[in-house]
Nucleic acid binder design. Structure first.
Length: 513
RNA sequence: GGCGGGGUAGCUCAGUUGGUUAGAGCGCAGGACUCAUAAGCCUGAGGUCAGUGGUUCGAUCCCACUUCCCGCUACCA
């Protein structure tokens, strides 16, 4: 069984500062990366920035900067964001890097070699900000300016020589591929959209531009730069040193396990990208997952409410783990989700502070007071104890299966239920009434500590920082966390010292506005 | 216009291959406890499962129509 896992986020377009959508994609990807890592997989987790194109070139000119200088600055804000989000990405790729340029040009040559590229002429309405051409029927006039109907962005008439990719030729192979690989596009509803789009007919795709220079040059024709999407998508390969397909990274991690993307860029990933790869005779990624958007609902955008969409500000105010937890718990994965201050506060207080944080606190405080500050030595499990402990064992494969199907909500609900059960167990067993029966008291404490440990392992991919803080109780460090050990009921070493820990989650005073 | 998804407790959402009292979390009310971050536990209130009609012994779940929301896509201009 292949124990390698390659997950990617989209590479972000640094023409504006990071927003919640970027944070969401990255956090979800990091969740999967961490989960797979503690389950014994060798994980390659890629994120980065997409830095070419006319939009960037113009933004740089506006600031009087060289495009690369401009990108250096903004790319860094995204790199900083990945630190702020505590991402465990193994690599951060920039499309302005030499390794990427080589990959893209090689991929181009392959497409050309296989007769999938031809030179022709294109004329049409082009939107710089959308990086897309529009048909006459896709634009309208607004205040005397021509704009794209969908995006309302300004379009300009462009007529130029352009290279084309024979996308039309791949319509049938793509449809066959979708049919043979039922999991290729997820969730199901997105897959249906893609299929119906492809069925409606594919036109050849213009894949070069002459009107600006900020991009990767077409091999053997310096007048053209390569279309940004062909450029950008290739990052998934260039990070693995493509075209050196015999190198360690490429052999190990291609094809990618999953490209995690937002639903807005599904077409590029589920149609163009596979077509390019088919044409270049490269294996296709195993799955494209188009997740939903994070919305604020239709609340008025007061100053404070507006901030809820700025991940940095949210993290400043509530902490990273509160945000990570919220996005994974409260958003039905695959659908759009809402975020609001009230719900974030609610979620932090009830799930994290009251339920998980307090459980850690009550169990350790009790253990320290009543078991000499050590993990109890002399224990004797009874049915009640084994019943709750074994539940983790029984569900391990179920958990894995659900994660492989991106069923995040199953995972978190499983944890939340476990927390309820854990608190109930401690309540029902009433160890504070067992002070005349030290062995029973010890057993209850040991069981409760084991549960805290197991749950903290499970929470690690979601709220890594807090999970690690909790695991300090047992002096367990990050590299010791492994999923399969949640089936071990006596993982904790008896007699070891128990560390008192600080409050894990402060409760947030309810803001009333 | 076509295709697809959806309208389930105050809020966010599960669910039902049609079958006696429709679920969870949060919020709300009451209770017992005290190890703990006034946390946790127990109990309860709260829903004509968008509307109308149909199929069926029986529909929240199937069908038709109506209405509202969302996504993809087209046409007209």
């Amino acid at each position: 069984m292949d124990k390698n896992f390659y997950i990617t986020t989209p590479i972000y377009y640094p023409s504006a500062k990071p927003h919640m959508g970027h944070a969401y994609s990255s956090i979800i990807a990091d969740f999967f990366a961490r989960f797979k890592r503690i389950d014994g997989y060798d994980v390659y987790f890629l994120t980065g920035t997409d830095e070419h194109g006319l939009k960037i070139q113009r933004a740089a000119e506006k600031k009087g900067l060289d495009p690369l200088e401009f990108c250096n600055v903004i790319s860094k804000t995204f790199k900083d964001l990945s630190n702020t989000l505590n991402l465990t990405n193994t690599d951060f790729i920039r499309t302005t890097e030499e390794r990427h340029k080589k990959s893209v040009q090689h991929l181009w040559s392959e497409l050309e070699k296989n007769d999938d590229i031809y030179l022709s002429k294109y004329s049409g309405w082009y939107s710089v900000s959308d990086e897309a051409f529009y048909n006459e029927d896709e634009i309208e006039e607004l205040d005397g300016v021509k704009v794209a109907i969908n995006s309302k962005s300004i379009v300009e008439w462009i007529e130029e020589e352009s290279y084309f990719f024979r996308l039309s030729k791949w319509q049938k192979p793509l449809l066959d591929y979708y049919e043979k690989h039922a999991d290729f596009i997820s969730p199901e509803s997105r897959k249906n959209e893609v299929i119906s789009f492809v069925k409606s007919g594919l036109k050849d795709l213009s894949i070069s531009r002459k009107t600006f220079s900020w991009g990767i040059k077409v091999p053997n024709n310096k007048n053209h730069v390569i279309y940004v999407w062909l450029d950008a998508l290739t990052n998934y390969l260039s990070a693995l040193n493509y075209p050196e397909i015999n190198n360690e990274l490429y052999k190990k991690f291609w094809p990618a396990s999953i490209h995690l993307i937002g639903k807005d860029i599904l077409r590029f990933h589920a149609i163009y990208w596979p077509a390019f790869l088919l044409a270049a005779k490269i294996d296709l990624p195993k799955k494209i997952y188009g997740h939903g958007w994070i919305l604020t609902g239709d609340e008025k955008m007061s100053k404070s409410k507006g901030n809820i969409l700025d991940p940095i500000k949210v993290i400043d105010e509530y902490g990273l783990d509160a945000l990570r937890y919220y996005l994974i718990k409260e958003v039905s994965f695959g659908n759009d989700g809402n975020i609001s201050q009230e719900k974030l506060e609610d979620c932090n207080n009830s799930d994290l502070a009251n339920n998980y944080g307090n459980l850690c606190q009550r169990v350790t405080a009790f253990a320290i007071k009543n078991c000499d500050g050590n993990i109890p030595n002399k224990i004797n499990f009874q049915n009640d104890d084994l019943l709750i402990l074994n539940k983790y064992n029984d569900n391990l494969n179920n958990i894995r299966k659900n994660i492989d199907n991106q069923n995040l909500n199953f995972y978190i609900n499983y944890i939340v239920n476990s927390l309820f059960e854990a608190n109930k167990y401690f309540n029902d067993q009433e160890p504070w009434k067992k002070k005349d029966d030290q062995e029973r008291l010890n057993t209850i404490v040991y069981t409760a500590l084991e549960i805290v440990r197991k749950i903290s392992f499970l929470l690690y991919p979601i709220i890594p920082e807090s999970s690690l803080k909790a695991l300090k109780i047992f002096n367990i460090s990050e590299n010791e966390i492994n999923l399969s050990s949640i089936s071990n009921n006596e993982y904790l070493i008896k007699g070891n010292y128990i560390n008192k820990i600080d409050i894990l989650f402060k409760k947030i005073e309810r803001s009333n506005d």
